[in-house]
């Protein structure tokens, strides 16, 4: 097994754990945590390909990862703001209880 394969498998496992969390948890914040884990798995892939790719001096994978970290930060801020507003409106963060878009 080459090193890159190991990193890619870890990233795939992390992505699947995040996906399972986002699909199975009832609390909206835990769903966001799952999405964060999936974004991080993608970052690990980008960095691993940058490290083992043929032209690391061009910094392509590294730049993708840095921009992806910035986008993830923006996503977390907006997502958690939405969860707080949802709790204020529906008095719960249980996604099984929130089943109407009209509120």
């Amino acid at each position: 097994m080459t090193p890159l394969t190991g990193f890619l498998l870890v990233a795939a496992l992390l992505f699947s754990i995040g996906l399972a969390g986002a699909l199975t948890r009832r609390n909206a914040i835990l769903v966001l945590i799952g999405i964060e884990l999936m974004l991080n798995a993608a970052n690990l892939n980008l960095i691993a390909f940058w490290r083992y790719g043929p032209h690391p001096e061009r910094l392509t994978g590294m730049m993708f990862a840095i921009f992806s970290i910035a986008v993830a930060a923006a996503e977390a801020a907006v997502g958690l703001g939405l969860v707080i507003q949802l709790h204020r409106h529906a008095h719960t963060t249980d996604l099984d209880a929130i089943n109407r878009m009209k509120g």
Partner: peptide
């Protein structure tokens, strides 16, 4: 419980 009632489908999708 902390898991949605459709947890089995979610777990199968992730797997």
């Amino acid at each position: 419980g902390v898991f949605s009632h459709t947890w089995l489908a979610g777990l199968a999708t992730a797997a």
